[in-house]
Nucleic acid binder design. Structure first.
Lengths: 334, 334
DNA sequence: TTGTACGCGTTATCAA
DNA sequence: TTGATAACGCGTACAA
């Protein structure tokens, strides 16, 4: 028999369907012998509960979504795994929905359509709430405000859309970037370049934080957007810091400016993650965000919204998490 | 009014619920004027279909899962995004379920429990089928055979569990590693080290493929498992190739062997992905797997199983996809 | 063109 | 301790 249901079990055991339901769910008001018998035949017939039906009847799913809008190669999957485990510890399951903003656009002619569909589904009963990592400011604001209007419990994690009244969990990027700048500066840096061109709040906060720190130190810092196309580093400077969010971006910049950066003393500052040797820098300083804690707080705030709805005011809107650690890599090979 | 249903719309519009259902789904047998009116009030009231109910009634979800068992930092999220877009183009949606094999084990005392729960849910009606990237051979075989027994449509992607009668989509790793070895060897390599210690079919195929290629070239190749703890590279060799699946593994190995590798001519060979400069190698050759095509085939085979069930024999069990490209990185900075 | 009625698999409330 | 029954929201033959 294919996919036995509670009804099937009830017939086989010659009891009512509601007894079967109770027995399998460990309700104490079933005779031990009945429970035994029912459970055995459930096992024997390979019964599996239908979660669709259960969730429909119960009105909730105990499932959370985390929606990533990706650019570039995106973060590692392990960042989502943290959230998954945290949710699981709270007896929720978590699913990741992915949208790649860069690719597949022209290919199928429906890049935004895909994103739209994901967000739409988030308000159609499959999930109790969503953690959202948005990316494009412009398109996000209208699509996401629909979700807000639908009262879908949601949290922005890492990045966010400031226009929307949605709780945010993120690193204190202003302060983190400032600290990163100071740590880079400690290597006798005489000049800095700040590569945070993305039009989103996180990049802006990092740019501002690093900029202010360098200014206080009296170190001239060039913002990427101030760099003209044929900008050249001043020849006389010999030690330079370059800060960015991602190794890839930094690397591409270095390759473009190869001729000028060669034989300069370089210090790189990045967030999260660095693979391999510092090269071409002498040192890389990495501001490692606390994914575990970001996940914990996101899930926590989300579940709070789900379980006590209409509790608008008490949760402050912006939660910040400190950097987990600053890691320094030095050249080991020459 | 919270969450209007078809019923609510029916009352407001003073028509039957089935008419509303038809109107919203574009059934041509509704009078244009009715459809107009119904759609407007649906819009006005913020109606959203309940996918739980729809899927329960229809007996399918048009949702696919891709289940990752992660070790290390795991692949990039963008690998899953490819599958998501492919599924979307076929009018399915795709969700990623993540389990981190390394972390969170001791923490909550339920590392395996988490994985088990994910796999269990895969047979409980929430998905029509699953793409699975397994990792640990031992535990996977028993957990996954449950899924097989439940007739859950599934495909292994990238890695797989050979004992189970499940279609596999993967790179031809034997041949890819052989080609990678030959391309490394072309840099006048005199000795090779193969770092593929993981106990899974992919690592084994890569080890075998690279090993055979080096053997044919008459280049001595050391397998990691043959390396004693205080192994030292022979002093006289001057150019050495080191092959591995991941940059991280390679880098950790290089740091451990720092004293011996310094000032040697190194050629690295890896799969998929390299961030930054080749350092400490002179060159890195990257065998880039075709994620897009792997995703396309996985989704395709999965959907075929879903849509024409009980078609056991005609699909060959193992599908291989060629490497997308071999990329070579050379030192640009010294 | 629209309405009636039943089924999807489960949970919950009441009554027995 | 168990059974009957009504939701949950939607799809769909079948009838009108």
């Amino acid at each position: 028999m294919a996919k036995p249901t509670l009804n099937d079990l009830a017939k086989v055991c010659e009891v009512d369907i509601s007894t079967v339901s109770r027995a399998l769910r460990g309700d104490p008001r079933v005779k031990a012998s009945s429970r035994q018998r029912i459970r055995e035949t459930a096992e024997r017939l390979g019964y599996r509960p239908n979660l669709l039906a259960r969730n429909l009847a119960g009105g909730k799913t105990r499932a959370l979504w985390i929606i990533y809008a990706l650019t570039g190669r995106g973060p590692r999957l392990s960042s989502g795994a943290a959230a998954s485990h945290v949710a699981n510890a709270r007896d929720y399951s978590l699913f990741v929905a992915l949208h790649d903003c860069d690719n597949y656009g022209a290919l199928e002619g429906h890049s935004i359509a895909h994103y739209e569909q994901i967000l739409e589904q988030a308000s159609q009963g499959l999930t109790d709430g969503a953690i959202i990592l948005p990316r494009r400011h412009e398109s996000d604001v209208s699509l996401l405000s629909d979700l807000v209007r639908q009262n879908v419990p949601m949290v922005f994690a890492d990045n966010y859309v400031p226009e929307l009244p949605v709780p945010v969990v993120s690193t204190d990027n202003h302060q983190a970037a400032a600290e990163l700048a100071r740590r880079c500066a400690a290597f006798d840096v005489e000049e800095a370049i700040l590569l945070f061109p993305e039009p989103n709040p996180v990049a802006r906060a990092r740019l501002a934080g690093a900029g202010e720190a360098f200014q206080q130190l009296g170190i001239p810092a060039l913002n990427r957007s101030e760099l003209s196309d044929n900008w050249k580093p001043s020849k006389k400077r010999t030690r330079m810091a370059i800060l960015s969010s991602h190794q890839d971006y930094l690397h591409r910049f270095a390759l473009r400016q190869e001729a000028f950066l060669k034989n300069k003393g370089l210090i790189f500052g990045v967030f999260d993650d660095w693979s391999g040797e510092p090269s071409p820098a002498e040192n890389v300083i990495i501001a490692v965000q606390d994914n575990q804690e970001l996940a914990r707080q996101s899930v926590d705030i989300l579940i709070r919204q789900i379980e006590k709805p209409k509790n608008l005011s008490p949760t402050p809107l912006h939660h910040t998490v400190p950097i987990a650690e600053f890691r320094t890599l030095s050249q080991r090979f020459t």
